[in-house]
Write a protein that binds this DNA or RNA. Structure first.
Lengths: 187, 187
DNA sequence: TCTATAACTAAACGATTGTTTAGTTATGAA
DNA sequence: TTCATAACTAAACAATCGTTTAGTTATAGA
């Protein structure tokens, strides 16, 4: 039997994810990944196959992190106020410094063109759909709403999240908080 | 005196702008620009200095196009309903096909990292500020609102525009219209 | 202790990146 | 008609891109 890997794949992917998160897909080079992940190119390729492979795993890693916020929301019984809290949690999650990194999924959706890699596009679509399902489930706690109202409100919340993600990059926390308060006014 | 240019700088920049709009800054290469603009690399460099130069001019070109919608809004006397119409106009402007290109300014803001080119970041910031000023001016048509309310509502509308821009990429026109109706509910 | 195996290092791969340069061609003023 | 000038073509630039390969090292099982 040969020697064991010196690195942990989950650990190095988290580092890669942070790099993609800060700089986007195209700007992030294999050279930067090598440095940030702390392993040789060969190791990267033997573990993840390609730059695209590293990115797809990074997206998974990002989703896992965001799932912590989503799970908290899923367990919430505060209806729409739980979603409001999710918006606040999202700001803390994406805006550690003055320059917010936004949501990696939203960033990527905005960066790529129509003829980008299909696996990446699928990954973005499926995650957007997942979040929408969570929102829908919470909204259904209010039994007075019909299906089409739920659908519309879930879409509204998803698109508001897109806006919030972009806004973290240039707006202050106070402005972001005001935005949330406006979204959930009278709620 | 030497010979005159065979191409018109405004015309070729519009073509470049469309390429950046579809594919983003990093994905768009000089080779692609050469082909799309229909002129030699030398001509591109003698006219615009660098890829960054081409992009900065493309941003100006994009702003001019968007200004047509903004000018219509500026002349509007319908208050917030004029802004609502601007949102609808924006959808027609950015979503010609099923895959919406979004707003070039928003796309770029989401693509670039913190240490991106300062001129580009300035250009994005200034345009965002310009649009916000137009929104503020319209909102001031309602004399009952105080300054801080105006400020908050203008921020709200800008961030909603960010969301709309991202949403054009994956949502249907019907969904986008529903979003707008939700934004301007009871208005 | 020996050995098969895979993780490792480091160099190089061809292709493409943005940019520049040398040489040619066209043209408006003299 | 001549000629200085700059727009043009096309090739090459160094650097970097994502990826691969050859050679070395470490190690678990025999």
């Amino acid at each position: 039997m040969p020697r064991a890997k010196k690195y942990n794949e989950e650990e190095v992917i988290e580092k890669a994810m942070n790099l993609f998160w800060r700089n986007g897909y195209e700007t992030t080079s294999m050279q930067m990944l090598e440095k940030e992940m702390g392993i040789n190119k060969f190791s990267i390729y033997s573990s993840f196959g390609s730059k695209n492979g590293v990115f797809l795993e990074s997206l998974k890693c990002y989703k896992q992190k965001l799932n912590k916020l989503l799970n908290k929301l899923k367990e919430s019984e505060n209806g729409i106020l739980g979603i409001k809290q999710y918006f606040y949690d999202f700001i803390d999650f994406t805006k550690e410094t003055e320059f917010g990194k936004g949501c990696l999924v939203t960033n990527t959706a905005n960066e790529i063109g129509e003829d980008a890699d299909e696996q990446i596009k699928d990954s973005l679509r499926s995650f957007t759909e997942e979040v929408k399902q969570v929102f829908s489930k919470i909204l259904k706690q209010d039994r007075t709403k019909d299906a089409s109202t739920i659908e519309q409100q879930a879409d509204f919340l998803i698109i508001s999240m897109f806006g919030l993600s972009s806004a973290t990059r240039i707006f202050t926390k106070e402005q972001l908080h005001n935005y949330i308060e406006n979204i959930f006014k009278n709620k």
